[in-house]
Amino acid sequence: MKRKKEVVIKENPMRFYTLADKVVLGLTTFVLLLFFVVLLYPLLYAVISSFAKGVLPLNLIPTRITLEGYIACIEYRYIWTGFRNSVIYTLLGTGIALLVTICCAYALSVKHRLRGLMLAICMFTMYFDGGLIPNFLWINKLGLYNTVWALVLPGALSVYNMLVMRTYFENSIPAELHEAAQLDGASEIGYLIRVVVPLSGAVIAVIALYYISSLWNSYFQAMLYIQDLEKLPLSNILRSLLLTAQNAGLTTMDSSTAQKIEERQEVMKYCVIVVSSVPMLVLYPFIQKYFVKGVMIGAVKG
């Protein structure tokens, strides 16, 4: 992939461009620059705000620096339990999901009689869904309400991720290996564990990251199924801090008191935002190329 891109770049040197083309390119640069600012500015504003006392001016230079927002975060107990829960749910959920996805992708990558049927069983769930209420009633009936299983089991097989992995198994692992293993008397499961999985590190990493980011960021399942504050993941704690009961009663106060209260809440909100995004933002520079790779593997047959 990389080499191909390089070639294309070398074939587009400036000397081929006419004046009109250069105008178009100039505009392109300008729009990209504008977009760059629009992308980055809110992020910077949020991060710097978390350290700023009072409202951060638009030039991003705080009048005074403070850590009181972070101290308030640290003292808020449910941020810690939420953080712990999110880590546990994400790791457990990703482990289960990977196991299920690998088994399914491998079973579908080998040609046999029932493959079409199996594929149809999986694909149908991509396009049709029982709906929120039947799911909710059934999961309660299973006794999963207020347990971690209601969060990690229903999403354990993402058919889309499974298809990406299957494409990789089919295209990137030489069929000769399978024949050789069979001649040597290896069982299918032995072949999967000893040959396919070790050779598929890249795709497994990609899919793991897909599951990690969706589990870490999800809040809706926990909102439906988790009742105890102690068991809530970070997203839900965050949601209740950021989005509920905001501005309640503030409109009736005189505006300077209201503004002071809002400012104090604001600092803590920015801190919570930063704290909860830190794991993903720290990982992001390392993982973003894998995410991109995943999109490309999925698109191989597109």
Binding site: L39, W216, N217, Y219, S276, S277, L281, Y284
Partner: peptide, 10 residues
């Protein structure tokens, strides 16, 4: 790509 990795809640 960065905003894609921020959660919807945030």
């Amino acid at each position: 790509y960065a905003p894609h990795f921020i959660s919807t809640v945030v």
